[in-house]
Design a protein around this nucleic acid. Structure first.
Length: 422
DNA sequence: ATTCTTCCAGTCCCTGCTGA
DNA sequence: TCAGCAGGGACTGGAAGAAT
């Protein structure tokens, strides 16, 4: 019935199966981009929500999902995640299905007079809604985070802080986001209006429940969450030659949920950067068990998609030092690195099939190291002549979060049963 | 000597401003 | 429009000083 369809934002592109056009496949097209700010998992959930709606609205609907993504990883993950409920085909942008057999499970033909032209909402594209692309980008990122500080948003969008500041103010002026106290400092939170625009921008059907698929998955302490959210910016500073396409926090993969995952390319080769942040609250034994399992998951993922993975552990020094005992053999496709989570913007060089760590003492060896991109960092060292006498590695004790009590719950942890893994 | 207070450098967020 | 810098406010931890 029309009613259901009017709450969807899809294109209707029936395929003629006979010359006279009287027999057609009732095809609906849903377009998405890997740069929409959602990981493959969430996009797959949207596809299921759309499928459920279509099933109610039409007798023999087919769904054509058009994915705009560089490389192959995102596309592959999408295909794996989608459990089709109606005949579905997922294709790269610019490819189109030709008949019912292109769908899986295959579709069935309909008589043209039985499938009338549906009235649906206009699929969202940035241009046809008159927003600036970056404005929507910031809004989408914030929709996942719910509440965040500017540096975190800047990191995840890949934009500069100046830009993000400007965009945040514009979003605030439109009433889509608002200032909110996050722990110690004021930050930004998305408002209901902003959330509905973000949902609209992902072409999520009206009236469905998307919250549990949208956000970060687990509850994390302040510092933990912060390091995860800054992962993209951190990588960009540490490895300037890498191109990062997207980064998400708390993203469900086939198995396991990295604290942060950055996806991009290095010298033309697609690559993943998998981050685990450990604040060191579990025993060494638990830690070993956890990381042996997580590394196995990373190895499996790398070999399944033939994509190299850089696996990074960040935490207090003792965690990083202990971590080498948690490595269950190596995979030639995976490089493992560890680093002090306070030493922002630095990482050891990675090498596939090897474990590498680098501690903050590196500041002795290379005084002329590349300047940082993060605006608040440059002031960190320079004018400090008097302390030269007693340079000692920072005391490993001051490791607890400095920015907040961590008592307010900005986001909830949504546990999933199927992706089980903590 | 021990505990309490005060002070200051350091940290991290923000805004305002300048110049390209 | 945006990169980058200066500076303010809120807070912390440690050091120095004061009180017990």
């Amino acid at each position: 019935m029309m009613d259901v369809l009017s709450r969807l934002a899809l294109e209707w592109i029936p395929i003629s199966l006979t010359r006279d056009g009287r027999v057609v496949a009732d095809v609906f097209k849903h377009s998405l981009s890997a740069m929409d700010g959602l990981p493959p998992y969430s996009q797959a959930r949207i596809i299921e929500l759309i499928s459920n709606r279509l099933l109610k609205a039409r007798p023999r609907p087919c769904l054509w999902v058009s994915v705009d993504a560089p490389g192959s990883w995102y596309f592959n993950e999408m295909q794996r995640f989608v459990k089709p409920r109606i005949p579905t085909v997922i294709l790269p942008e610019r490819e189109a299905p030709k008949d019912v057999w292109d769908f899986s499970p295959h579709g069935y033909p309909s008589l043209a007079e039985n499938v009338e032209n549906p009235r649906m909402e206009l699929p969202f594209t940035v241009t046809n809604f008159g927003y600036k692309p970056n404005l929507i980008r910031v809004l989408r990122i914030l929709a996942r985070l719910k509440a965040a500080h500017r540096p975190e948003i800047a990191s995840l969008t890949g934009l500069s802080q100046s830009q993000v500041r400007n965009l945040l103010q514009q979003l605030q002026a439109k009433g889509l986001i608002e200032r909110r106290q996050i722990g110690k400092y004021e930050g930004w939170a998305i408002r209901t209006r902003g959330l509905s625009l973000a949902h609209r921008s992902w072409n999520i059907p009206k009236g469905v429940h998307f919250t549990k698929y949208r956000g970060e998955f687990r509850y994390a302490g302040e510092r933990h969450r912060r390091v995860s959210r800054l992962w993209r910016a951190w990588l960009g500073t540490a490895y300037p030659s890498i191109e990062i396409w997207e980064s998400w926090t708390e993203v469900p993969l086939q198995y396991g949920i990295p604290d942060a995952l950055a996806w991009g390319s290095h010298r033309g080769k697609e690559i993943l950067f998998w981050l685990e942040v450990d604040s060191g609250h579990s025993s060494r034994k638990t830690m070993e068990a956890n990381y042996k399992r997580r590394l196995q998951l990373a190895y499996a993922h790398a070999s399944r998609w033939g994509i190299p993975i850089v696996f990074c552990i960040m935490g207090p020094l003792w965690i990083v030092e202990h971590f080498r005992w948690c490595i269950p053999g190596m995979s030639p496709q995976v490089a493992i690195i560890g680093h002090d989570w306070r030493d922002s913007g630095n990482l050891p060089e990675y090498e596939f099939g090897k474990w590498r760590e680098k501690f903050s003492m590196s500041r002795f060896n290379e005084p002329t190291r590349s300047h940082r991109k993060l605006p608040f960092d440059p002031n960190q060292y320079p004018p400090k002549p008097k302390k030269v006498a007693k340079i000692k590695p920072p005391k490993p004790k001051s490791v607890k979060p400095k920015f907040s009590t961590g008592s307010e719950n900005v986001d909830r942890g949504y546990r999933r049963r199927s992706e089980g893994e903590e």
